[in-house]
Simulated assay, not measured.
Amino acid sequence: MFNDMPPLTHSQQQDAVERIQSLMVQGMSSGEAIALVAADLRRQHRSDMVTYDKCDEEDE
């Protein structure tokens, strides 16, 4: 289920929990909030990977 989740630091985990809690306070269900935050984390991770790959190519 979580095989495609990037590894997170403790600080990133705390930030994710706070975002999920904030979304739930605003009326979003826990499942929706978790899915939204997880999708954002995956998107950011992929973006970081692409940027890293491009930087490596420029150095060569």
Score class of each variant (00 low, 15 high):
M1Q: 15
F2W: 15
F2I: 13
F2S: 15
F2K: 15
N3Y: 15
N3Q: 15
D4T: 13
D4V: 06
D4P: 08
D4Y: 14
M5G: 08
M5V: 07
M5I: 08
P6A: 07
P6D: 02
P7M: 09
P7H: 08
L8T: 06
L8K: 11
T9P: 02
T9Y: 04
H10G: 15
H10V: 15
H10W: 15
H10I: 15
S11F: 13
S11G: 12
S11H: 13
S11E: 15
S11D: 15
Q12D: 09
Q12K: 09
Q13T: 11
Q13K: 14
Q13F: 10
Q14A: 14
Q14V: 15
Q14L: 15
D15I: 10
A16H: 04
A16R: 09
A16Q: 06
A16E: 02
V17L: 13
V17Q: 14
V17I: 12
V17Y: 13
V17G: 01
V17W: 14
E18T: 09
R19L: 09
I20R: 09
I20E: 03
I20N: 01
I20H: 09
Q21I: 11
Q21G: 10
S22Y: 10
S22N: 13
L23A: 07
M24D: 00
M24Y: 09
M24G: 00
V25M: 12
V25L: 13
Q26A: 12
G27D: 01
M28R: 13
M28T: 08
M28A: 12
M28P: 03
M28G: 01
S29V: 02
S29K: 12
S30H: 14
G31R: 12
G31F: 10
E32Q: 13
E32M: 08
E32W: 08
A33T: 01
A33M: 01
I34Y: 11
I34H: 07
I34C: 06
I34D: 06
A35G: 10
A35L: 04
A35Y: 08
A35E: 06
A35W: 03
A35N: 10
A35K: 12
L36D: 02
L36W: 04
L36N: 08
V37H: 03
A38T: 07
A39I: 00
A39W: 03
A39Q: 11
D40V: 01
D40S: 11
L41R: 07
L41Q: 04
L41D: 00
R42M: 10
R42K: 14
Q44G: 00
Q44N: 05
Q44F: 02
H45E: 02
H45N: 09
H45C: 05
H45D: 10
R46G: 00
R46A: 03
R46F: 06
S47C: 02
D48G: 00
D48V: 01
D48L: 05
M49K: 11
M49Y: 04
M49C: 00
T51M: 08
T51V: 08
T51L: 06
T51F: 05
Y52H: 05
Y52F: 13
Y52M: 02
D53I: 05
D53M: 12
D53T: 00
K54F: 03
K54Q: 04
K54N: 07
C55K: 05
C55A: 10
C55Y: 09
C55S: 06
C55G: 02
C55H: 09
C55L: 13
C55V: 12
C55P: 00
E57T: 01
E57R: 09
E58H: 10
E58D: 05
E58V: 01
D59E: 11
D59F: 10
E60Y: 12
E60K: 13
